[in-house]
Computed example of a mutant assay.
Amino acid sequence: MSTVQDIMERGPSSPRRSECLERIRAVILETLREDGAHATAVPGLMLYRWSVKRPSRPRVYRPSLCVVVQGEKQVWLGSQVFTYNPATYLVSSIHVPVQSSVSRATASEPYLALCMQFDPEELVDLLGDAWIRADEAVPETGLWVARMEDQLLDAIARYVDLVRHPEDVPYLAPLWRREIFYRVIRGEGGQRWARLLAASYANPAHLAVRYLAEHFRDHVRIEDLALLVKMSPSALHRHFKALTNMTPIQYQKRMRLLEARRLLLSDVPSVTEAALSVGYESVSQFTRDYARFFGLPPSKDVKRLRLAP
């Protein structure tokens, strides 16, 4: 697979690519008059607009295809950095806590992007037997970046244009959504995505990630998780870290803290309630973990975020 630097240095866009990018930009600018994120009526499609750079912030990436049509974004998974822009796209095959930042955006040329969330089940029937290799010795990292190809971008542009034509969504969205994922699998890096998708149903480390993503509030012993996915605790630790760049305990803690922050920013009235709702038994331990991860105690962090532009 090409490096991000190789991809960024391949020269100007083709006329077809420029046209597709402009079509997507027009829909996003028409839909989002101000900065923010917007959930559309098109299945799984989110649109984003930011007119200033956004500093690195923790968040959870879900299984999704992410595309930048103007600007640039960076995502950190442990020590690995993934950069994507209009020449590339990013795929997340798992639920994983990351750090992300908008690294290129201005008022005159705002960051514009989209994200298509997916359920791996909807893609399995696209994978012929020749693609499926779920017996990898060590799982590959659950995030990756690849070069955007013209046919894929054209299919994405048609899908995004359904925002303007909601009456067509029931009929055309399933067809074009399937085409998009087909183009990814057939394109650069598609074999890797196919392996990850197949592994998500057969590889024990993927099963462990899916279980923790759904049960991060529960008390989960590593020994019990290893038994559940039929691995030894040491093997689970090694494979889980290869996939997520963190241990199972680190993964669960970050999922809890990110959900607690979301709750505190929405409708949960107290730190105690947020701590208990995400699985902490000790509020003082929650406060220490929260401050260590976000840099401020819960109340101060939430106040800062609410006052931020």
Rank of each mutant, 00 (worst) to 15 (best):
R59D: 10
R59V: 04
R62G: 01
R62L: 12
R62H: 10
R62Q: 13
S64T: 08
V68L: 01
V68S: 11
V69P: 01
V69K: 07
G71P: 05
K73Y: 01
L77G: 06
F82A: 03
T83W: 00
Y84D: 11
Y89Q: 11
L90K: 05
I94Q: 14
I94T: 14
H95Y: 14
V96A: 07
V96S: 09
P97M: 09
V98Q: 11
V98Y: 09
Q99H: 13
V102Y: 04
A105P: 07
T106H: 03
T106F: 05
A107N: 05
A107K: 14
A107Y: 05
S108K: 15
S108H: 13
P110K: 11
Y111W: 15
Y111D: 07
Y111I: 11
L112D: 07
L112Q: 09
A113W: 01
A113N: 01
L114F: 05
L114D: 03
C115G: 07
M116E: 08
M116N: 01
Q117W: 00
F118Q: 10
D119V: 02
P120G: 02
P120A: 02
P120L: 03
E121P: 00
E121A: 13
E121T: 06
E122P: 02
L123R: 09
L123K: 08
D125R: 12
D125F: 07
L127C: 09
L127E: 02
D129G: 14
W131Y: 08
I132R: 15
E136A: 14
E136V: 12
A137G: 12
A137C: 01
A137F: 03
V138Q: 08
V138I: 14
P139I: 06
P139G: 10
G142C: 15
L143M: 11
L143W: 11
V145F: 09
E149L: 04
E149K: 05
